[in-house]
């Protein structure tokens, strides 16, 4: 997995999946359409503000609420390279990993990092460098099984490899 570099969009606690992608857009699962409405009730015209590679940093319980995989898809296709949060809602965590969006549990980093900071993240090691403040943090490393899925590019390629091999 490559080293990710981007500017921070900082969010608070309990950011729910309705805020990430409102249900009024769930009449489609097209990634670009979902991305164009990502977080729009929180950050209007987000798509004009994000540069590819930018990083979402949030508080506790990020992605709570519905099981809609449209939420991590919207984030990924909006151009975010990864998400850092103090903690995640369970279904969102699985969904992000399954679609190959690196998301890292990093409580200390998320409390310290500010909007607009420039970060460098090594998702494999969980290391986070804040180039704005020259501080460095360590997020929780992925369990080996999760890492395996991320390295395959998501759950479907991971399972498809196995099916092809006849496992």
């Amino acid at each position: 997995m490559q080293i990710l570099k981007g500017r921070v969009f900082k969010l608070g606690d309990d950011i729910d999946t309705d805020l990430i992608i409102a249900a009024r857009y769930l009449n489609s699962s097209e990634p670009e359409y979902l991305a164009s409405h990502c977080l729009e009730d929180l950050i209007p015209q987000l798509d004009e503000k994000v540069n590819p590679g930018d990083i979402l940093v949030a508080g506790r319980n990020f992605g709570c609420g519905s099981s809609r995989e449209h939420a991590p898809i919207a984030i990924k296709y909006a151009g975010f390279s990864c998400v850092l949060a103090e903690s995640y809602a369970r279904i969102f965590y699985r969904n992000a990993i399954n679609i190959g969006l690196p998301i890292i549990v990093a409580p200390e980093a998320c409390r310290a990092i500010k909007e607009g900071d420039k970060l460098e993240v090594d998702p494999r090691e969980g290391t986070i460098i804040n180039h704005t403040t020259s501080e460095q943090y360590k997020g929780e490393p992925f369990p080996p099984f999760i890492l395996e899925i991320l390295l395959s590019g998501g759950l479907i390629p991971h399972v498809a490899e196995k099916v092809k091999k006849g496992d």
């Binding site: 519905s66 279904i91 969904n95 399954n98 759950l155």
Partner: peptide, 24 residues
Amino acid sequence: DSHTCTYGGLGAFSTGVGSTDLAV
């Protein structure tokens, strides 16, 4: 669907997942 946990009311273990987990 996240409210799949409803069936726990009958003593089933049921849980919500995303579409990719569901596909698998």
